[in-house]
Design a protein around this nucleic acid. Sequence first.
DNA 1: AAAACTTACGAAAAGGTTTTCGGAAACTTA
DNA 2: TAAGTTTCCGAAAACCTTTTCGTAAGTTTT
Lengths: 339, 339
Amino acid sequence: MKKTTLKEIAETLGISISTVSKALKNYPDVSAKTKKRVIDLAESLQFTPNTFAQSLRSNESKTIGVIIPSMVHYYFSSILDAIIKESEKNGYMVIILQSNEDHELEKKQINLLLNKGVDGILISLANGTKDFQYLQKVIDYGIPLVLFDKINKLLKCSKVIINDIKASYDVVTYLINKGYKRIAYFRGDLNPQNSIDRFLGYKKALEDNGIKYDSSLVYLSPIANFDEGYANAKKLIEEDKIDVDAIYTITDLTAIGVINYLNEKNIKIPDEIAVFGFSNWFMSSVITPTLSSVEQNAYRTGEKSVELLFKEIDSKQKGEPFKHETITIDTELVIRNST
Amino acid sequence: MKKTTLKEIAETLGISISTVSKALKNYPDVSAKTKKRVIDLAESLQFTPNTFAQSLRSNESKTIGVIIPSMVHYYFSSILDAIIKESEKNGYMVIILQSNEDHELEKKQINLLLNKGVDGILISLANGTKDFQYLQKVIDYGIPLVLFDKINKLLKCSKVIINDIKASYDVVTYLINKGYKRIAYFRGDLNPQNSIDRFLGYKKALEDNGIKYDSSLVYLSPIANFDEGYANAKKLIEEDKIDVDAIYTITDLTAIGVINYLNEKNIKIPDEIAVFGFSNWFMSSVITPTLSSVEQNAYRTGEKSVELLFKEIDSKQKGEPFKHETITIDTELVIRNST
DNA sequence: AAAACTTACGAAAAGGTTTTCGGAAACTTA
DNA sequence: TAAGTTTCCGAAAACCTTTTCGTAAGTTTT
């Protein structure tokens, strides 16, 4: 089975290819009668234009590329959900790549997408990413680029983020107001901006509330997973940090590791130790006890990211200049039984 | 910034476009000297062939399409993880679409992918899908198609599934051997094949173990989510089904709903009622109590699906006939504290 | 030295669409 | 009726790569 082409329609009707093309695109210089003949035949043959040829001519693929660290992740899959749906509404398809937190792979994938001829790129950076030359290359090539979640402030392009400093500040302030005094923090690596910012928010809230920052209450969980949360909680308890009354973590998964350890040791949450997470994974609402967290509005982040990208693609098509924007997505504290 | 073309290289070197193309593809009828000149210049200009033109010529996009019901789902995102990674290894990119369990949308998306010119399609069917004409169309067009997870037996194409009947049979047999006698089942809709099969496995295990099937112990949860599990558990308890000693559900999420209700009512798991799920979501290993489940090997399902698809794409390129295969992925019971 | 090969390159077509431009025919205006 | 306008269509180029086929020059064989 072969696809119908303009040529076939033209030959069948005894007219030229140009006329067929113009008829289907409703050009004014085709008579109503001819238009009808063309459209009728095109429909009966289920004609759809060959996208390869269209892309070659227009240099547009009607496809965008997305690079995320990992797909099996509540936050990212929610963002992708939004990106895919919004793109489809706009007649675009989405190619997804996973950097796997590997900086070199990310670099290669950017090049793959550029070669592929995508009309725009959305990316949440891998943690290790320090050299931004290849992203600058995307910008130089004039390909619309939007950074979301894990961004780099130095790049001149649009960005969608949350205010991590404020969100983190709010968490700690809430804990202090609840009466918790010795608040441990399980921080992430100091590489992606949001990891730094959450740590800064933690510190600032302590300071503003007259609590001295104590570095012995800060534990590192570089990949922010379940095991690290569990291990750090174990360490904390075994180090006899008996006065710690709350543990706040870089992300929910780590917090759930903490909860599991505390549950095992029969340490009462929140009576003996409270736990606060970040990102509001679905899981957090169904574990025991339910986990307080920060709703990051992943879906909205995805929506806004594509929105910015399409704005930029649009400007490019029209040859208009484009003003980069940075959108900050609102976050909210979700209070549950763990605090 | 514009992309380098063969033409530019040809003009710079004062040779023809054909020769440049052949030099880069290492044709034997280009002298070593010319080859070197071409390759050197191509590298310094960072030449990469225009994929639009390549696709137009070869009628291949080096892209495959995937349609799943939903992306924010542990099972599906794991499958996608595998699909994306394996495709990348083979030099293919992946376009992902979500049918949202909407049969009409699914149909539209198949057409989108066909028009896009993807080299193959992977799909897990929406629950409501009853009319398979448009999938037959894919096959008729000669586009490689692989069904996974939620399939239809009548379609003549490759498939990757698990043995749902056996997996379910094993669960119930295990429960019976553990001494549970009144085993309730929260079943899914009778539409996708796997939902039917799990139900059949449940019935058969009862029968083979001399336990009479009791339809009053079967509850329906059509979309198999948390709330339905919770609601059905509530209903079961409020109906005073006091002798029920185990609840087995179509999927983990539903089981977690059950656990949450039982926890709330202080009904001891597994002492008063045991709970068994299906799919082994990550969540199941961290809730209280941890949930017994069936490991479905999602990643492996993804791997095998692309493997079959690429086999078929390969055969097509070589003009060889292709023999459809159905691969059955092994499952294992994962026993935890809920049973 | 003529015949038979080999080597190395280029012309050209094909893949399908889009859009500009030119021109013939039909029509309107003075 | 001549000049000016519309209306409608088609030729052709452009987007870029790939591959077949032809051919000139050079090399080897009789």
